[in-house]
Design a protein around this nucleic acid. Structure first.
Length: 485
RNA sequence: GGCCCCGUCGUCUAGCGGCCUAGGACUCUGGCUUCUCAAGCCAGCUACGAGGGUUCGAAUCCCUUCGGGGCUACCA
């Protein structure tokens, strides 16, 4: 019987989680859910100079916001914790000592300057750069000399001769000659562990069965496998590796701050829905195999297999994300749309959040739902319903001060004033009768003037519905005011 | 430089030897609809990096080449 799948997402929060990280997290999560396995979330904070508590918290919040819930990890705990590597230092130290005792690893006293000089020479000589194994077999005397010089040692893993071959679930069999995989550092001179040590130890100790991660880690896999071997793990117990293709920016370089907005926090502020982000990201490097593109989280879990993941990198396309976000917004129920919209309305000060305001927003949302792509457009769309001191946009004023417009507005006022029933049907019937039929105007001319007068802009939600929501009193007052411009 | 990965429309992709005069989606262009903006509908543009093989037949298999990317840290 196959082992129960356990997939881990293990970011190193040296900044806000970005699009690439999230795509990896999404695939990890989807694979775990698809297989009925466990999704483990681990924080790789061994580089204390770059990881901050704020970034760690932000990573946790982002995953939660996206709905990528984890079964083991920060906040939820689990039997293989702790899940912050900074809290597991003693574990790594123990293993490092064991490797030392087994002679799989050794102390290296070379200074950074010496290592740099070696690399320079190798480069100049056109040979593979990397540690030359100088400290592999130091005698006690030599060690004593180094120590007397005040040198501090790092712990290096000894790479034996030969090669490492493993099967990558996405790329097939991959092989590395050890002469191109130099002895690597496990523990810094200050005693702190490096990624190379911590990642391998944790994946084994936390019983991870599948490692789905970015392809930048592909060439570090032989090192990871070397640590498994030193730990005494049998090959059949190694995790399965699958290296996901990159998400690239417009300029065909790995996505970074330079080539586009990559922080998920930014997308959140712009009004993208988590489901849209996940749907779009799912399509970057993966497809269900048919023409389906609108995929829910539940469907993703059902359909996701590593087999369908690409081996080639994908370019991030904001336009397509926007299109999907628009689709997702249109598919929202009214209550959900309201829930997502409210924060944008209050944040911009359009509404304070009173019950009556919320009720008006709720009745107005249906008429804007199909005309926005992002939630941050909601305030602009509904502003006219809430502004205390209404004014026509400066650019639009000139369009309603001509004689025709004045006539339209005067006539509208006269026709609307006696209306006893104020709804979009009655408003439309009244305005059509007088402006289109009697005055013989083109609808876009006639209604355009009324639109500017009542909503303040040439662009608005449907006019009659807008006027209904605005109310008779305010509508008429605005038309009257427009006549004085 | 060395090692490794990758290569279908502008972009994301379908395709796993004949169903391909290469399908879908986004973008773009034109049109329809229309009270603005959208949405919706219709149409159009545009791709198998190149060169060799293998085969009756190749986007699909092999080789070479070109191009892109990653790694080459006491980062991850």
């Amino acid at each position: 019987m196959a082992k129960k799948v356990k997939v881990r997402f293990a970011p190193s929060p040296t900044g806000d989680l970005h699009v690439g990280n999230i795509r990896t997290a999404l695939f990890d999560w989807a694979y775990a859910r698809h297989t009925g396995g466990t999704f483990l979330f681990r924080i790789e904070d061994t580089d204390t100079t770059r990881v901050t508590d704020e970034y760690i918290q932000a990573a946790i919040d982002t995953l939660k916001w996206l709905g990528l819930n984890w079964d083991e990890g920060p906040e939820v705990g689990g039997e293989n914790g702790p899940y912050l590597q900074s809290q597991r230092l003693d574990i790594y130290a123990e293993w490092a000592q064991k490797f030392l005792d087994q002679k799989d690893a050794y102390h290296c006293y070379c200074t950074p300057a010496e290592l740099e000089a070696t690399r320079e020479a190798q480069r100049a000589a056109n040979v593979a750069p990397g540690y030359d194994g100088k400290c592999r077999d130091l005698s006690a005397d030599q060690v004593a000399v180094y120590k007397s010089e005040g040198r501090e040692a790092v712990i290096r893993m000894r790479m034996p001769d030969g090669s490492t071959t493993f099967v990558d679930e996405i790329r097939g069999e991959v092989s590395f000659e050890h002469k191109f995989v130099p002895d690597f550092v496990l523990v810094r001179a200050d005693g702190s562990p490096l990624y190379t040590l911590a990642v391998a130890v944790d994946d084994i100790l936390m019983k991870v069965t599948h490692v789905l991660r970015g392809e930048d880690l592909l060439s570090s896999t032989p090192r990871q496998i070397r640590v498994y071997q030193a730990m005494g793990v049998k090959p059949e117990d190694f995790p399965v590796f699958a290296h996901l293709p990159f998400v690239m920016g417009q300029d065909n370089a790995k996505l970074s701050k330079r080539n586009g907005e990559v922080s998920i926090a930014w997308y959140r502020e712009q009004g993208y829905l988590p489901e849209a982000i996940c749907n779009y990201l799912a399509l970057l490097g993966w497809s269900p195999g048919d023409d389906r593109e609108n995929i829910t989280m539940a469907e993703l879990c059902e359909l996701f297999t590593v087999e369908k993941v690409h081996s080639s990198p994908a370019r991030f396309d904001m336009k397509k994300l926007e299109a999907i976000n628009g689709d997702k917004i249109r598919a929202l129920t009214l209550d959900d749309f309201l829930k997502w919209s409210l924060p944008f309305l209050t944040k911009t000060g359009i509404i304070a959040g009173t019950d009556s305001e919320i009720a008006l927003v709720k009745s107005a949302l249906p008429i804007i739902q199909e005309r926005i792509v992002k939630l941050d457009e909601v305030p602009q769309m509904l502003k006219f319903l809430f502004v205390k001191e209404f004014a026509v946009e400066v650019d639009s004023v000139s369009k309603i001060i001509d004689d025709v417009s004045k006539d339209v507005l005067k006539r509208s006022l006269k026709e609307l004033e006696p209306l006893s029933t104020w709804n979009h049907d009655s408003i439309e019937a009244a305005l059509r009768a007088c402006l289109i039929e009697e005055m013989g105007l083109k609808p876009r001319i006639a209604f355009g003037a009324v639109r500017i007068a009542t909503t303040g802009s040439t662009i608005s939600p449907p006019l009659f519905e807008s006027m209904e929501l605005l109310g008779k009193q305010a509508s008429l007052a605005r038309i009257a005011a427009a006549l004085t411009l």
